[in-house]
Simulated scan of single mutants.
Amino acid sequence: MTDSNTTNFTNPSTFILLGISGLEAALVWISIPFCAMYAITILGNFTILFIVKREPSLHRPMFYFLCMLAVTDLVLSTSIAPKTLSNFWFNSREINFSACLTQMYFIHCFAVMESGIFVAMALDRYVAICHPLRHFTILTNPVVAKMGLAIVLRGSMLILPYPFLARQRPYCRTNIIPHTHCEHMAVVKLACADIRVSNYYGLFVVFYVLGLDVFFIAVSYIQILRAIFSLPTKDSRVKTFGTCGSHVCAILTFYLSALFSSLTYRFGQNVALYFHVLMANVYLLVPPMLNPIIYGVRTKQIRDRLLWLFTHKGT
């Protein structure tokens, strides 16, 4: 393996995922919360999908978007968790070059899709609160389907240059990736060529997606807040804003962790490498785990249906 790490090559057959460098002695303990987060993600998001599918009253735009979010979270977490856990438990560090680029594509593609879904959910809340009588005439099933298609196409096309640019670079120094998964910048930094195009394009995607999506979400919630504060009673204001509470919590969890992880990896040269890697994993594992919990606890229709299922099975 040592020879392959020092021999010149332009397309390595495999990369070596180093894991969390500096915390090797604690990997078994770190794997416990990682495994728990992944298990909760799988259970929680499949539960959301099951409940929405079984309950006809939940076949509405808000819950369609929630199902899109659940599917996105399942793919996003599954893109990294199994390989990361096999690295921790079985020291399975090798990953095929093409598989690495595929993993890179899926991670970033579905992260962009998740951001787009949050915008769609903010739009749904805006229409539901500011134009309640026209909610179901504006957000019809065909409109929701077109929004979902637009979200998928945007994520797919924006991230497509990532693996193509990475594949064209010569890798002549090492094939060791100091990470648990094939994160975009972690891979391209191994190239022995000018990576400014990849770096600049990656920054463009980060600020384009975060900037544009956060702007649309902010505009939606400004209008929502204006509508809420115009309501006549405090109880009606609290009740109406409560319908947005779960969405706000999910947005903050996703965007804050995404922004912190991306900027730390690019500009935090004085931050320990293991912290970079841990933050990247937190960004990809924590929001998919928390989303079904947040929506399941705070969304009355899902909470009531879940309680009904448990009580019904118990009778």
Rank of each mutant, 00 (worst) to 15 (best):
Q168V: 08
P292K: 04
D194N: 15
G22Q: 03
R93M: 10
I195T: 15
H312I: 05
M1S: 13
A111T: 15
T41C: 14
A218R: 14
A111F: 11
L273Y: 03
R303E: 06
I228Y: 10
F90K: 01
S236H: 13
H312L: 11
C244T: 12
I177W: 12
T253I: 09
T10V: 02
A128R: 09
N175I: 07
F229M: 15
P142D: 02
R173C: 10
L160Q: 07
A193I: 14
T253V: 15
V248K: 06
P61D: 03
V286S: 06
D304V: 13
Q103F: 00
P56I: 00
I117Y: 02
L263A: 04
A70R: 06
F216L: 15
K234F: 13
G116E: 13
C67Q: 08
D213A: 04
F63Q: 03
Q269V: 05
R154L: 14
F136Q: 10
N8H: 06
V297L: 10
T311R: 15
K146Q: 08
S262V: 05
T180E: 01
I176L: 12
D3C: 07
I117K: 04
T84A: 07
Y265T: 12
G314F: 08
L160Y: 11
H179K: 11
D235W: 01
S115W: 03
M1G: 09
F215Y: 15
I129H: 07
V52A: 02
N5D: 13
H108P: 04
A258M: 14
S246H: 12
M1W: 15
Q103E: 15
T233P: 12
Y64H: 04
R237Y: 05
S236G: 12
I40S: 00
S220M: 08
V112W: 07
I217R: 14
N199M: 14
Y255A: 04
L74I: 04
Y208E: 14
P170H: 05
H59G: 00
A150V: 08
P142Y: 02
A25L: 03
V188W: 11
R303D: 06
S236I: 14
I107P: 13
I151L: 07
I302E: 12
T84H: 02
L306C: 15
L278K: 10
I222Y: 11
N141D: 07
R298F: 13
F50E: 04
G22A: 03
K300D: 10
F118V: 08
T72S: 02
T264Y: 01
R60D: 00
R173E: 13
T47D: 03
F106W: 05
